[in-house]
C-alpha cells in the first residue's frame, strides 16, 4: 500500500509509453516486442552493438519508420495519443514542437546552406514566428547556451568544427522547448575532449528544461554519465533494462555481462 502512495505522489503519467513494438525487414527482425515507459525528466539510454536494433527502435519511436506492430503512446497536450496511427501532419507537428531529434552526423540534422541563425530559427518559423527581430534574438540566446559566439550567427555550419556543428544541431532542436529528445549517437564522431563538453551541455539542458531523452549509443561511458535508465538490446530484442548503474555494475544477462566486461573501465 505504501508503494501505491509513492506511485500516486509522483507524476504518474508516462510521457512516452511503448507497448509491444516490432519492426521486421522481411524475415529479418529489426526490433521485436519492445515495451517501456518513459517518465517526464527521465533520460533513457539504449545500448547494443551494430545491428542490435537500437537505431531501428529509435526511428520507430520518432516516427521516421512505421512499426509493424505495437503502440507508441505520447502524452500530447490533448492527452495520450498513439503516434503510430496518428496522421502524418499531426506527427510532424509533434516533431517540430514537442519532439527533437539529434542525428549522429550533424550534416543530417542541419541545413548546411543556411546560416546558423536560420538553422536555429527554422523551427520557430515553422510554428508561426513572424517577427525577424524576435527570431534573431532567440537564435542569439540559443547560440550562447550552446557556447557558440553570437558573431557566428550569420556563418554557415560548413564553416564550423564538428563539435560546433553538433552543438548547433542541439540548439536548432531545443529552441522550441521540446519535451522529448531523441538522440542517435550524439557524441559519436567527436574527439574525446569535445565529447565531454557536449555531455556537460546536454546534462545541463536536460536538467534546466526538464527534458526527457532517449539516447542511442554504443558508448557505455556516455550512458553512465547521461542516462538514468538503461536498455540493452541484442538481435532486435531488449535483453535487459534497469537503472543505469545497476545494469552496468551488476549486469544480469549473459550478453550485458560480456558487453560490460569487454570495455575499458567505465
Amino acid at each position: 500500500m505504501k508503494d501505491l502512495d509513492i506511485w500516486t505522489s509522483m507524476k504518474t503519467q508516462p510521457l512516452l509509453s511503448v507497448q509491444g513494438l516490432s519492426k521486421f525487414y522481411g524475415a529479418r527482425i529489426g526490433c521485436d516486442a519492445v515495451s517501456f515507459d518513459l517518465y517526464p525528466g527521465e533520460v533513457l539510454g539504449i545500448v547494443g552493438e551494430s545491428g542490435s536494433g537500437k537505431s531501428t527502435l529509435l526511428s520507430c519511436l520518432a516516427g521516421h519508420l512505421a512499426p509493424d506492430t505495437g503502440k507508441v503512446i505520447f502524452d500530447t497536450v490533448d492527452g495520450p495519443r498513439d503516434t503510430v496511427v496518428m496522421g502524418e501532419a499531426e506527427r510532424r507537428r509533434l516533431a517540430r514542437t514537442d519532439w527533437a531529434y539529434v542525428h549522429q552526423n550533424p550534416r543530417d540534422g542541419l541545413r548546411m546552406g543556411v546560416s546558423a541563425g536560420g538553422n536555429v530559427g527554422e523551427r520557430l518559423m515553422a510554428v508561426g514566428a513572424r517577427h525577424y527581430g524576435d527570431i534573431r534574438a532567440q537564435a542569439v540566446d540559443w547560440l550562447g547556451r550552446v557556447e557558440i559566439a553570437a558573431d557566428r550567427i550569420d556563418d554557415r555550419p560548413s564553416a564550423f568544427s564538428g563539435g560546433m556543428q553538433q552543438r548547433l544541431q542541439i540548439a536548432r532542436n531545443l529552441v522550441t522547448g521540446p519535451r522529448l529528445v531523441f538522440m542517435d549517437e550524439p557524441t559519436g564522431g567527436l574527439d574525446v575532449s569535445v565529447q565531454a563538453r557536449l555531455l556537460d551541455l546536454l546534462r545541463g539542458l536536460v536538467r534546466e528544461m526538464g527534458l526527457s531523452a532517449i539516447i542511442v549509443t554504443h558508448d557505455l561511458a556516455v550512458v553512465r554519465l547521461l542516462a538514468d535508465r538503461l536498455m540493452v538490446m541484442k538481435g532486435g530484442y531488449v535483453v535487459e533494462q534497469g537503472l543505469t548503474d545497476q545494469v552496468l555494475d551488476d549486469p544480469q544477462h549473459e550478453y550485458t555481462q560480456l558487453l560490460v566486461s569487454s570495455v575499458l573501465q567505465v
Binding site: 509513492i6 509522483m10 527521465e42 538514468d228
Partner: peptide, 10 residues
C-alpha cells in the same frame, strides 16, 4: 529491492 528505477532515482 523491488522498486522501479524511477523510484530509486527519486
Amino acid at each position: 529491492a523491488k522498486a522501479a528505477p524511477r523510484e530509486i532515482i527519486a
